[in-house]
């Protein structure tokens, strides 16, 4: 029984995390934060390190949410890491962030969100970034 959230340090990722925290507090379930990297480049901006990951942990503690932060680096894509975590923790909800993509961008890069939507066995909550004011 848990809620899985795919987290990346971007406005979509933050929106997803916020929503997931709200959901977890409401339902009093374990919140599993997944932040993975394929580990195939020297630098991966989506992989949170050092003070930033500590800040996320502090935030979750402050909210009083039972949580787990996973940061697997084993050559897999983000989608399969989220799906695997959902499997292991018997997720009943996956929260992901969505961003706008051009058609060409979709064609070349594939879509993490799409793979999760198609392959997950539980409901998925897709969140968009808060509009900038």
């Amino acid at each position: 029984m848990s809620i899985i959230v795919g987290y990346v340090p971007s406005s979509e990722g933050v929106a997803a995390l916020e929503t997931a925290i709200t959901e977890a507090r409401k339902s009093q379930k374990l919140l599993v934060v997944v932040n993975s990297s394929r580990g195939d480049a020297l630098v991966d901006r989506r992989y949170v390190q050092g003070d930033d990951i500590a800040a996320v942990a502090d935030r979750l503690k402050a909210e009083g949410v039972e949580h787990l932060i996973l940061q697997p680096v084993r050559g897999n894509g983000a989608a399969s890491e989220v799906l695997q975590a959902a499997d292991e923790h018997q997720a009943d909800l996956i929260v992901i962030g969505l961003r706008k993509r051009t058609p060409v961008g979709k064609l070349i890069m594939g879509s993490t969100a799409q793979q999760i939507l198609l392959e997950a066995d539980c409901p998925i909550l897709a969140v968009k970034a808060a509009p900038r004011n």
């Binding site: 195939d40 901006r45 050092g50």
Partner: peptide, 8 residues
């Protein structure tokens, strides 16, 4: 190959 991302 280094498999862990470095912190930039």
């Amino acid at each position: 190959l280094r498999r862990t991302p470095a912190n930039i």
